[in-house]
Design a protein around this nucleic acid. Structure first.
Lengths: 236, 236
DNA sequence: AAGTGGTCTAGACCACCTT
DNA sequence: AGGTGGTCTAGACCACTTA
Protein backbone atom coordinates (compact mmCIF):
# COMPACT_ATOMS: atom_id res chain seq x y z
CA UNK A 1 0.00 0.00 0.00
CA UNK A 2 1.40 3.36 -0.97
CA UNK A 3 1.03 5.85 1.87
CA UNK A 4 -2.48 7.31 1.86
CA UNK A 5 -3.93 8.49 -1.39
CA UNK A 6 -6.38 5.60 -1.51
CA UNK A 7 -5.86 2.24 -3.19
CA UNK A 8 -7.89 2.55 -6.34
CA UNK A 9 -9.96 5.60 -5.60
CA UNK A 10 -13.42 4.58 -6.72
CA UNK A 11 -12.69 1.32 -8.43
CA UNK A 12 -12.18 0.59 -12.10
CA UNK A 13 -11.70 3.25 -14.71
CA UNK A 14 -15.11 2.73 -16.30
CA UNK A 15 -16.72 3.74 -13.02
CA UNK A 16 -14.83 6.99 -13.02
CA UNK A 17 -15.67 7.64 -16.64
CA UNK A 18 -19.34 6.91 -15.94
CA UNK A 19 -19.20 9.36 -13.04
CA UNK A 20 -17.53 11.99 -15.18
CA UNK A 21 -20.12 11.64 -17.92
CA UNK A 22 -22.94 11.81 -15.38
CA UNK A 23 -21.50 15.00 -13.98
CA UNK A 24 -21.11 16.50 -17.41
CA UNK A 25 -24.70 15.58 -18.21
CA UNK A 26 -25.88 17.27 -15.03
CA UNK A 27 -23.76 20.30 -15.85
CA UNK A 28 -25.45 20.50 -19.21
CA UNK A 29 -22.24 19.92 -21.14
CA UNK A 30 -24.09 17.58 -23.45
CA UNK A 31 -27.41 18.51 -24.98
CA UNK A 32 -30.42 16.19 -24.96
CA UNK A 33 -30.54 14.26 -28.19
CA UNK A 34 -26.84 14.82 -28.79
CA UNK A 35 -24.80 11.90 -29.98
CA UNK A 36 -22.04 10.76 -27.67
CA UNK A 37 -19.19 9.43 -29.75
CA UNK A 38 -16.87 6.97 -28.12
CA UNK A 39 -13.69 8.42 -29.56
CA UNK A 40 -14.51 11.96 -28.54
CA UNK A 41 -15.35 10.84 -25.03
CA UNK A 42 -12.19 8.77 -24.95
CA UNK A 43 -9.99 11.79 -25.66
CA UNK A 44 -12.05 13.97 -23.39
CA UNK A 45 -11.60 11.74 -20.37
CA UNK A 46 -8.17 10.48 -21.33
CA UNK A 47 -9.04 6.84 -21.75
CA UNK A 48 -9.61 4.18 -24.38
CA UNK A 49 -12.80 3.86 -26.36
CA UNK A 50 -13.52 0.45 -24.92
CA UNK A 51 -13.56 1.80 -21.41
CA UNK A 52 -15.95 4.50 -22.53
CA UNK A 53 -18.20 1.83 -23.98
CA UNK A 54 -18.46 0.10 -20.64
CA UNK A 55 -19.31 3.35 -18.96
CA UNK A 56 -21.98 3.99 -21.56
CA UNK A 57 -23.57 0.61 -20.94
CA UNK A 58 -23.77 1.54 -17.29
CA UNK A 59 -25.44 4.86 -18.06
CA UNK A 60 -27.81 3.14 -20.42
CA UNK A 61 -29.01 0.89 -17.62
CA UNK A 62 -29.51 3.93 -15.42
CA UNK A 63 -31.68 5.75 -17.93
CA UNK A 64 -29.31 8.60 -18.79
CA UNK A 65 -28.70 7.74 -22.41
CA UNK A 66 -30.11 5.59 -25.15
CA UNK A 67 -27.84 2.99 -26.61
CA UNK A 68 -28.47 1.28 -29.93
CA UNK A 69 -26.35 -1.45 -31.50
CA UNK A 70 -24.17 -0.17 -34.30
CA UNK A 71 -25.63 3.25 -33.67
CA UNK A 72 -23.95 4.45 -30.52
CA UNK A 73 -25.22 6.54 -27.65
CA UNK A 74 -27.58 9.51 -27.56
CA UNK A 75 -28.27 11.75 -24.59
CA UNK A 76 -31.74 10.88 -23.45
CA UNK A 77 -34.10 13.84 -23.57
CA UNK A 78 -35.86 14.04 -20.22
CA UNK A 79 -39.32 14.83 -21.43
CA UNK A 80 -42.21 15.13 -19.03
CA UNK A 81 -43.43 11.77 -20.25
CA UNK A 82 -40.14 10.12 -19.34
CA UNK A 83 -40.32 11.58 -15.86
CA UNK A 84 -43.90 10.43 -15.44
CA UNK A 85 -42.99 6.95 -16.64
CA UNK A 86 -40.08 6.65 -14.26
CA UNK A 87 -42.16 7.83 -11.33
CA UNK A 88 -44.97 5.50 -12.22
CA UNK A 89 -42.56 2.59 -12.26
CA UNK A 90 -41.09 3.70 -8.97
CA UNK A 91 -44.53 4.00 -7.44
CA UNK A 92 -45.47 0.49 -8.49
CA UNK A 93 -42.33 -0.93 -6.98
CA UNK A 94 -42.25 1.10 -3.79
CA UNK A 95 -45.87 0.45 -2.98
CA UNK A 96 -44.84 -3.18 -3.08
CA UNK A 97 -41.82 -2.67 -0.85
CA UNK A 98 -43.85 -0.62 1.61
CA UNK A 99 -46.19 -3.57 2.00
CA UNK A 100 -43.31 -5.97 2.46
CA UNK A 101 -41.74 -3.64 4.97
CA UNK A 102 -44.85 -3.89 7.12
CA UNK A 103 -44.47 -7.65 7.15
CA UNK A 104 -40.73 -7.97 7.46
CA UNK A 105 -39.43 -5.05 9.44
CA UNK A 106 -38.47 -5.52 13.06
CA UNK A 107 -39.37 -2.91 15.63
CA UNK A 108 -35.72 -2.02 15.57
CA UNK A 109 -35.89 -1.35 11.84
CA UNK A 110 -38.78 1.02 12.38
CA UNK A 111 -36.81 2.78 15.07
CA UNK A 112 -33.86 3.12 12.75
CA UNK A 113 -36.10 4.48 10.03
CA UNK A 114 -37.48 7.14 12.31
CA UNK A 115 -33.95 8.12 13.26
CA UNK A 116 -33.25 8.80 9.62
CA UNK A 117 -36.41 10.83 9.58
CA UNK A 118 -35.26 12.83 12.63
CA UNK A 119 -32.04 13.73 10.90
CA UNK A 120 -33.99 14.61 7.80
CA UNK A 121 -36.21 17.01 9.71
CA UNK A 122 -33.18 18.57 11.33
CA UNK A 123 -31.57 19.18 7.96
CA UNK A 124 -34.82 20.64 6.65
CA UNK A 125 -34.98 22.93 9.69
CA UNK A 126 -31.58 24.30 8.79
CA UNK A 127 -32.44 24.63 5.12
CA UNK A 128 -29.71 22.20 4.15
CA UNK A 129 -31.23 20.98 0.92
CA UNK A 130 -28.34 18.80 -0.11
CA UNK A 131 -28.46 16.92 3.17
CA UNK A 132 -32.23 16.71 2.82
CA UNK A 133 -31.83 15.11 -0.55
CA UNK A 134 -29.35 12.57 0.78
CA UNK A 135 -31.44 11.68 3.81
CA UNK A 136 -34.60 11.44 1.78
CA UNK A 137 -32.78 8.95 -0.40
CA UNK A 138 -31.63 7.05 2.66
CA UNK A 139 -35.14 6.95 4.03
CA UNK A 140 -36.61 5.30 0.97
CA UNK A 141 -33.63 3.07 0.38
CA UNK A 142 -33.83 1.80 3.92
CA UNK A 143 -37.44 0.79 3.42
CA UNK A 144 -36.64 -0.91 0.15
CA UNK A 145 -33.77 -2.85 1.62
CA UNK A 146 -35.71 -4.04 4.65
CA UNK A 147 -38.48 -5.15 2.33
CA UNK A 148 -36.02 -7.77 1.17
CA UNK A 149 -36.70 -7.99 -2.55
CA UNK A 150 -33.25 -7.67 -4.08
CA UNK A 151 -34.55 -7.43 -7.60
CA UNK A 152 -36.66 -4.40 -6.83
CA UNK A 153 -33.91 -2.81 -4.78
CA UNK A 154 -31.51 -3.20 -7.67
CA UNK A 155 -33.87 -1.56 -10.12
CA UNK A 156 -34.71 1.41 -7.94
CA UNK A 157 -31.07 1.92 -7.01
CA UNK A 158 -30.19 1.95 -10.70
CA UNK A 159 -32.45 4.89 -11.29
CA UNK A 160 -31.50 6.55 -8.02
CA UNK A 161 -28.83 8.88 -9.33
CA UNK A 162 -30.93 10.03 -12.24
CA UNK A 163 -33.93 10.69 -10.04
CA UNK A 164 -32.01 12.64 -7.44
CA UNK A 165 -30.48 14.62 -10.24
CA UNK A 166 -33.93 15.51 -11.52
CA UNK A 167 -34.97 16.40 -8.00
CA UNK A 168 -31.92 18.61 -7.62
CA UNK A 169 -32.78 20.33 -10.85
CA UNK A 170 -36.19 21.56 -9.73
CA UNK A 171 -34.94 22.28 -6.23
CA UNK A 172 -36.29 21.32 -2.86
CA UNK A 173 -38.45 24.15 -1.62
CA UNK A 174 -39.64 24.72 1.92
CA UNK A 175 -43.17 23.75 1.01
CA UNK A 176 -42.00 20.53 -0.55
CA UNK A 177 -39.84 19.68 2.45
CA UNK A 178 -42.79 20.20 4.79
CA UNK A 179 -44.94 17.94 2.73
CA UNK A 180 -42.27 15.27 2.61
CA UNK A 181 -41.87 15.45 6.37
CA UNK A 182 -45.54 14.96 7.09
CA UNK A 183 -45.82 12.15 4.54
CA UNK A 184 -42.88 10.35 6.08
CA UNK A 185 -44.32 10.74 9.56
CA UNK A 186 -47.63 9.27 8.46
CA UNK A 187 -45.78 6.45 6.79
CA UNK A 188 -43.79 5.61 9.90
CA UNK A 189 -47.00 5.64 11.88
CA UNK A 190 -48.58 3.20 9.43
CA UNK A 191 -45.52 0.99 9.80
CA UNK A 192 -45.83 1.10 13.59
CA UNK A 193 -49.47 0.07 13.31
CA UNK A 194 -48.43 -2.64 10.86
CA UNK A 195 -51.06 -1.34 8.49
CA UNK A 196 -50.00 -2.42 5.02
CA UNK A 197 -52.87 -0.83 3.15
CA UNK A 198 -52.31 2.53 4.73
CA UNK A 199 -48.56 2.32 4.13
CA UNK A 200 -49.24 1.49 0.52
CA UNK A 201 -51.62 4.34 -0.10
CA UNK A 202 -49.39 6.86 1.65
CA UNK A 203 -46.44 5.75 -0.46
CA UNK A 204 -48.48 5.94 -3.60
CA UNK A 205 -49.76 9.41 -2.84
CA UNK A 206 -46.34 10.58 -1.70
CA UNK A 207 -44.69 9.69 -4.98
CA UNK A 208 -47.54 10.96 -7.07
CA UNK A 209 -47.35 14.37 -5.43
CA UNK A 210 -43.58 14.36 -5.71
CA UNK A 211 -43.88 13.78 -9.42
CA UNK A 212 -46.46 16.52 -9.81
CA UNK A 213 -44.22 18.87 -7.87
CA UNK A 214 -41.37 18.16 -10.23
CA UNK A 215 -43.49 18.63 -13.32
CA UNK A 216 -44.89 21.90 -11.97
CA UNK A 217 -41.39 23.27 -11.55
CA UNK A 218 -40.15 21.81 -14.78
CA UNK A 219 -39.84 23.90 -17.87
CA UNK A 220 -42.80 23.28 -20.09
CA UNK A 221 -41.84 23.00 -23.71
CA UNK A 222 -38.24 22.15 -24.23
CA UNK A 223 -36.71 18.80 -23.57
CA UNK A 224 -34.20 18.70 -20.81
CA UNK A 225 -31.25 16.86 -19.60
CA UNK A 226 -30.90 15.90 -15.99
CA UNK A 227 -29.26 18.95 -14.55
CA UNK A 228 -28.04 22.22 -16.00
CA UNK A 229 -27.18 23.40 -12.48
CA UNK A 230 -29.71 24.90 -10.12
CA UNK A 231 -28.64 27.94 -8.13
CA UNK A 232 -31.41 28.66 -5.65
CA UNK A 233 -32.64 25.68 -3.79
CA UNK A 234 -34.80 26.37 -0.75
CA UNK A 235 -37.86 28.55 -1.19
CA UNK A 236 -38.21 28.01 -4.90
CA UNK B 1 -24.24 -7.36 -50.28
CA UNK B 2 -23.17 -10.97 -50.55
CA UNK B 3 -25.99 -13.08 -51.96
CA UNK B 4 -28.36 -14.25 -49.22
CA UNK B 5 -26.86 -15.55 -46.03
CA UNK B 6 -27.98 -12.44 -44.16
CA UNK B 7 -25.98 -9.28 -43.75
CA UNK B 8 -24.83 -9.45 -40.18
CA UNK B 9 -27.02 -12.23 -38.89
CA UNK B 10 -28.19 -10.96 -35.52
CA UNK B 11 -26.14 -7.82 -35.16
CA UNK B 12 -22.92 -7.24 -33.32
CA UNK B 13 -20.75 -10.02 -32.01
CA UNK B 14 -21.52 -9.34 -28.37
CA UNK B 15 -25.16 -10.14 -29.07
CA UNK B 16 -24.21 -13.50 -30.47
CA UNK B 17 -21.92 -14.19 -27.57
CA UNK B 18 -24.66 -13.21 -25.13
CA UNK B 19 -27.02 -15.58 -26.92
CA UNK B 20 -24.49 -18.36 -26.85
CA UNK B 21 -23.88 -17.94 -23.14
CA UNK B 22 -27.61 -17.86 -22.47
CA UNK B 23 -28.04 -21.08 -24.37
CA UNK B 24 -25.19 -22.71 -22.52
CA UNK B 25 -26.69 -21.59 -19.24
CA UNK B 26 -30.04 -23.10 -20.19
CA UNK B 27 -28.27 -26.27 -21.27
CA UNK B 28 -26.67 -26.46 -17.86
CA UNK B 29 -23.15 -26.17 -19.24
CA UNK B 30 -22.31 -23.80 -16.44
CA UNK B 31 -23.16 -24.55 -12.84
CA UNK B 32 -24.86 -22.04 -10.56
CA UNK B 33 -22.26 -20.21 -8.54
CA UNK B 34 -19.60 -21.04 -11.08
CA UNK B 35 -17.21 -18.31 -12.06
CA UNK B 36 -17.30 -17.27 -15.69
CA UNK B 37 -13.83 -16.18 -16.71
CA UNK B 38 -13.53 -13.83 -19.61
CA UNK B 39 -10.56 -15.53 -21.20
CA UNK B 40 -12.10 -18.97 -21.06
CA UNK B 41 -15.31 -17.68 -22.59
CA UNK B 42 -13.30 -15.81 -25.18
CA UNK B 43 -11.59 -18.99 -26.39
CA UNK B 44 -14.79 -20.95 -26.10
CA UNK B 45 -16.75 -18.65 -28.37
CA UNK B 46 -13.82 -17.65 -30.51
CA UNK B 47 -13.78 -13.99 -29.69
CA UNK B 48 -11.90 -11.38 -27.71
CA UNK B 49 -12.25 -10.92 -24.00
CA UNK B 50 -13.61 -7.44 -24.41
CA UNK B 51 -16.48 -8.66 -26.49
CA UNK B 52 -17.23 -11.23 -23.84
CA UNK B 53 -17.29 -8.48 -21.26
CA UNK B 54 -19.97 -6.63 -23.14
CA UNK B 55 -22.03 -9.76 -23.42
CA UNK B 56 -21.65 -10.31 -19.69
CA UNK B 57 -22.89 -6.82 -18.92
CA UNK B 58 -25.95 -7.63 -20.95
CA UNK B 59 -26.57 -10.85 -19.07
CA UNK B 60 -26.05 -9.07 -15.80
CA UNK B 61 -28.85 -6.65 -16.62
CA UNK B 62 -31.09 -9.59 -17.48
CA UNK B 63 -30.53 -11.33 -14.17
CA UNK B 64 -28.59 -14.36 -15.44
CA UNK B 65 -25.31 -13.66 -13.75
CA UNK B 66 -23.86 -11.52 -11.01
CA UNK B 67 -21.15 -9.11 -12.01
CA UNK B 68 -18.82 -7.48 -9.52
CA UNK B 69 -16.11 -4.94 -10.32
CA UNK B 70 -12.64 -6.45 -10.28
CA UNK B 71 -14.26 -9.76 -9.43
CA UNK B 72 -15.80 -10.92 -12.64
CA UNK B 73 -18.97 -12.85 -13.31
CA UNK B 74 -20.66 -15.65 -11.42
CA UNK B 75 -23.59 -17.74 -12.63
CA UNK B 76 -26.54 -16.63 -10.61
CA UNK B 77 -28.06 -19.43 -8.54
CA UNK B 78 -31.78 -19.44 -9.21
CA UNK B 79 -32.98 -20.05 -5.71
CA UNK B 80 -36.65 -20.08 -4.88
CA UNK B 81 -36.22 -16.70 -3.27
CA UNK B 82 -34.83 -15.22 -6.48
CA UNK B 83 -37.79 -16.56 -8.41
CA UNK B 84 -40.23 -15.17 -5.87
CA UNK B 85 -38.50 -11.80 -5.97
CA UNK B 86 -38.60 -11.61 -9.75
CA UNK B 87 -42.25 -12.56 -9.84
CA UNK B 88 -43.12 -10.07 -7.14
CA UNK B 89 -41.43 -7.34 -9.14
CA UNK B 90 -43.21 -8.44 -12.26
CA UNK B 91 -46.53 -8.45 -10.46
CA UNK B 92 -46.04 -4.94 -9.17
CA UNK B 93 -45.24 -3.67 -12.64
CA UNK B 94 -47.84 -5.61 -14.58
CA UNK B 95 -50.66 -4.70 -12.22
CA UNK B 96 -49.70 -1.16 -13.09
CA UNK B 97 -49.67 -1.77 -16.83
CA UNK B 98 -52.98 -3.61 -16.65
CA UNK B 99 -54.52 -0.50 -15.13
CA UNK B 100 -52.97 1.72 -17.78
CA UNK B 101 -54.17 -0.62 -20.47
CA UNK B 102 -57.74 -0.10 -19.32
CA UNK B 103 -57.28 3.62 -19.78
CA UNK B 104 -55.24 3.71 -22.95
CA UNK B 105 -56.21 0.76 -25.07
CA UNK B 106 -58.46 1.29 -28.06
CA UNK B 107 -61.21 -1.19 -28.83
CA UNK B 108 -59.01 -2.33 -31.64
CA UNK B 109 -56.22 -3.10 -29.21
CA UNK B 110 -58.55 -5.24 -27.18
CA UNK B 111 -59.60 -7.04 -30.32
CA UNK B 112 -55.98 -7.67 -31.25
CA UNK B 113 -55.29 -8.95 -27.76
CA UNK B 114 -58.11 -11.44 -27.96
CA UNK B 115 -56.78 -12.62 -31.31
CA UNK B 116 -53.52 -13.47 -29.62
CA UNK B 117 -55.55 -15.28 -27.03
CA UNK B 118 -57.38 -17.25 -29.73
CA UNK B 119 -54.13 -18.43 -31.21
CA UNK B 120 -52.93 -19.28 -27.72
CA UNK B 121 -55.96 -21.47 -27.04
CA UNK B 122 -55.49 -23.16 -30.37
CA UNK B 123 -51.88 -24.00 -29.57
CA UNK B 124 -52.91 -25.28 -26.15
CA UNK B 125 -55.56 -27.43 -27.81
CA UNK B 126 -52.85 -29.06 -29.89
CA UNK B 127 -50.52 -29.46 -26.95
CA UNK B 128 -47.92 -27.25 -28.62
CA UNK B 129 -46.22 -26.02 -25.49
CA UNK B 130 -43.50 -24.08 -27.23
CA UNK B 131 -46.04 -22.10 -29.22
CA UNK B 132 -48.03 -21.64 -26.00
CA UNK B 133 -45.02 -20.17 -24.34
CA UNK B 134 -44.40 -17.76 -27.19
CA UNK B 135 -48.00 -16.65 -27.43
CA UNK B 136 -48.31 -16.27 -23.69
CA UNK B 137 -45.31 -13.96 -23.87
CA UNK B 138 -46.91 -12.04 -26.72
CA UNK B 139 -50.13 -11.68 -24.77
CA UNK B 140 -48.49 -10.04 -21.80
CA UNK B 141 -46.05 -8.02 -23.89
CA UNK B 142 -48.89 -6.62 -25.92
CA UNK B 143 -50.63 -5.39 -22.79
CA UNK B 144 -47.44 -3.85 -21.49
CA UNK B 145 -46.74 -2.05 -24.72
CA UNK B 146 -50.23 -0.66 -25.08
CA UNK B 147 -50.00 0.57 -21.51
CA UNK B 148 -47.41 2.99 -22.81
CA UNK B 149 -44.85 3.12 -20.04
CA UNK B 150 -41.57 2.54 -21.83
CA UNK B 151 -39.59 2.27 -18.64
CA UNK B 152 -41.68 -0.58 -17.34
CA UNK B 153 -41.74 -2.29 -20.71
CA UNK B 154 -37.97 -2.14 -20.87
CA UNK B 155 -37.57 -3.71 -17.44
CA UNK B 156 -40.01 -6.54 -18.01
CA UNK B 157 -38.56 -7.27 -21.44
CA UNK B 158 -35.11 -7.44 -19.89
CA UNK B 159 -36.21 -10.27 -17.64
CA UNK B 160 -38.32 -11.87 -20.34
CA UNK B 161 -35.82 -14.40 -21.59
CA UNK B 162 -34.85 -15.50 -18.09
CA UNK B 163 -38.46 -15.89 -17.05
CA UNK B 164 -39.48 -17.89 -20.08
CA UNK B 165 -36.45 -20.06 -19.53
CA UNK B 166 -37.61 -20.77 -15.99
CA UNK B 167 -41.08 -21.47 -17.29
CA UNK B 168 -39.67 -23.84 -19.88
CA UNK B 169 -37.75 -25.61 -17.13
CA UNK B 170 -40.79 -26.59 -15.10
CA UNK B 171 -42.85 -27.25 -18.19
CA UNK B 172 -46.28 -26.10 -19.22
CA UNK B 173 -48.75 -28.74 -18.16
CA UNK B 174 -52.32 -29.17 -19.33
CA UNK B 175 -53.68 -27.99 -16.00
CA UNK B 176 -51.53 -24.90 -16.10
CA UNK B 177 -52.54 -24.09 -19.66
CA UNK B 178 -56.22 -24.34 -18.72
CA UNK B 179 -55.75 -22.02 -15.83
CA UNK B 180 -53.87 -19.53 -17.97
CA UNK B 181 -56.60 -19.61 -20.57
CA UNK B 182 -59.36 -18.87 -18.12
CA UNK B 183 -57.35 -16.14 -16.45
CA UNK B 184 -56.67 -14.49 -19.77
CA UNK B 185 -60.32 -14.66 -20.72
CA UNK B 186 -61.35 -13.02 -17.49
CA UNK B 187 -58.73 -10.37 -18.03
CA UNK B 188 -59.91 -9.56 -21.52
CA UNK B 189 -63.44 -9.32 -20.19
CA UNK B 190 -62.30 -6.86 -17.53
CA UNK B 191 -60.59 -4.85 -20.25
CA UNK B 192 -63.79 -4.82 -22.31
CA UNK B 193 -65.68 -3.54 -19.28
CA UNK B 194 -62.92 -0.99 -18.72
CA UNK B 195 -62.74 -2.19 -15.15
CA UNK B 196 -59.26 -1.30 -13.91
CA UNK B 197 -59.63 -2.74 -10.42
CA UNK B 198 -60.77 -6.09 -11.72
CA UNK B 199 -58.02 -6.16 -14.34
CA UNK B 200 -55.50 -5.39 -11.63
CA UNK B 201 -56.66 -8.10 -9.28
CA UNK B 202 -56.85 -10.71 -12.03
CA UNK B 203 -53.32 -9.86 -13.13
CA UNK B 204 -52.08 -10.01 -9.60
CA UNK B 205 -53.67 -13.36 -8.92
CA UNK B 206 -52.60 -14.71 -12.29
CA UNK B 207 -48.94 -14.03 -11.64
CA UNK B 208 -49.09 -15.19 -8.07
CA UNK B 209 -50.50 -18.55 -9.09
CA UNK B 210 -47.99 -18.80 -11.92
CA UNK B 211 -45.19 -18.31 -9.45
CA UNK B 212 -46.63 -20.90 -7.08
CA UNK B 213 -46.95 -23.33 -9.95
CA UNK B 214 -43.31 -22.87 -10.79
CA UNK B 215 -42.20 -23.31 -7.21
CA UNK B 216 -44.32 -26.42 -6.83
CA UNK B 217 -42.61 -28.03 -9.80
CA UNK B 218 -39.21 -26.72 -8.88
CA UNK B 219 -36.70 -28.91 -7.15
CA UNK B 220 -36.70 -28.17 -3.49
CA UNK B 221 -33.25 -28.07 -2.04
CA UNK B 222 -30.58 -27.47 -4.59
CA UNK B 223 -29.92 -24.23 -6.34
CA UNK B 224 -30.60 -24.22 -10.02
CA UNK B 225 -29.65 -22.53 -13.16
CA UNK B 226 -32.23 -21.49 -15.67
CA UNK B 227 -32.60 -24.63 -17.67
CA UNK B 228 -30.87 -27.98 -17.64
CA UNK B 229 -33.22 -29.15 -20.37
CA UNK B 230 -36.71 -30.39 -19.79
CA UNK B 231 -37.86 -33.42 -21.73
CA UNK B 232 -41.55 -33.85 -21.03
CA UNK B 233 -43.58 -30.73 -21.34
CA UNK B 234 -47.33 -31.21 -21.45
CA UNK B 235 -48.97 -33.12 -18.66
CA UNK B 236 -46.27 -32.64 -16.06
C1' DA C 1 5.98 -13.00 -4.42
C1' DA C 2 4.18 -15.04 -8.01
C1' DG C 3 -0.16 -16.15 -10.29
C1' DT C 4 -4.64 -15.47 -11.88
C1' DG C 5 -7.72 -13.02 -14.19
C1' DG C 6 -10.10 -8.49 -14.61
C1' DT C 7 -9.06 -4.08 -16.93
C1' DC C 8 -7.22 -1.02 -20.33
C1' DT C 9 -5.00 0.74 -24.72
C1' DA C 10 -3.88 1.08 -29.58
C1' DG C 11 -5.02 0.17 -33.74
C1' DA C 12 -7.28 -2.76 -37.14
C1' DC C 13 -11.83 -3.96 -38.85
C1' DC C 14 -16.29 -3.40 -40.58
C1' DA C 15 -21.31 -1.65 -40.59
C1' DC C 16 -23.75 2.11 -42.05
C1' DC C 17 -24.49 6.57 -44.18
C1' DT C 18 -23.25 10.10 -47.44
C1' DT C 19 -21.93 11.56 -51.94
C1' DA D 1 -16.48 4.89 -53.18
C1' DG D 2 -15.30 7.27 -49.16
C1' DG D 3 -15.85 8.58 -44.47
C1' DT D 4 -17.36 8.32 -39.94
C1' DG D 5 -17.66 5.98 -36.02
C1' DG D 6 -19.09 1.63 -33.69
C1' DT D 7 -16.89 -2.93 -32.95
C1' DC D 8 -13.29 -6.21 -32.21
C1' DT D 9 -8.58 -8.22 -31.22
C1' DA D 10 -4.07 -8.79 -29.15
C1' DG D 11 -1.43 -7.97 -25.72
C1' DA D 12 0.11 -4.98 -21.90
C1' DC D 13 -1.24 -3.59 -17.30
C1' DC D 14 -2.64 -3.97 -12.70
C1' DA D 15 -5.85 -5.37 -8.71
C1' DC D 16 -6.58 -9.07 -5.92
C1' DT D 17 -5.65 -13.50 -4.22
C1' DT D 18 -2.67 -17.55 -3.23
C1' DA D 19 1.40 -18.93 -0.56
Amino acid sequence: MHSSNGPTLLGPRYFKVANAIREDLVRGEFQPGQRLKTNELATRYGTGSNTVREALQQLNGEGWIILAPNRGAVVRPLTRKVIVDIYEMREALEVCTARSFVENASNNDIRELSEIQDRFEEAAQQGDTIECSVLNGNFHRFINQCAGNEEITKIIDNYGRLMSSIRRYVGYGRARADRVISDHRLLIEAFRDRDADRAASITSEHLRVSCEDILANYLTDVDHVAGSFVSDAVGA
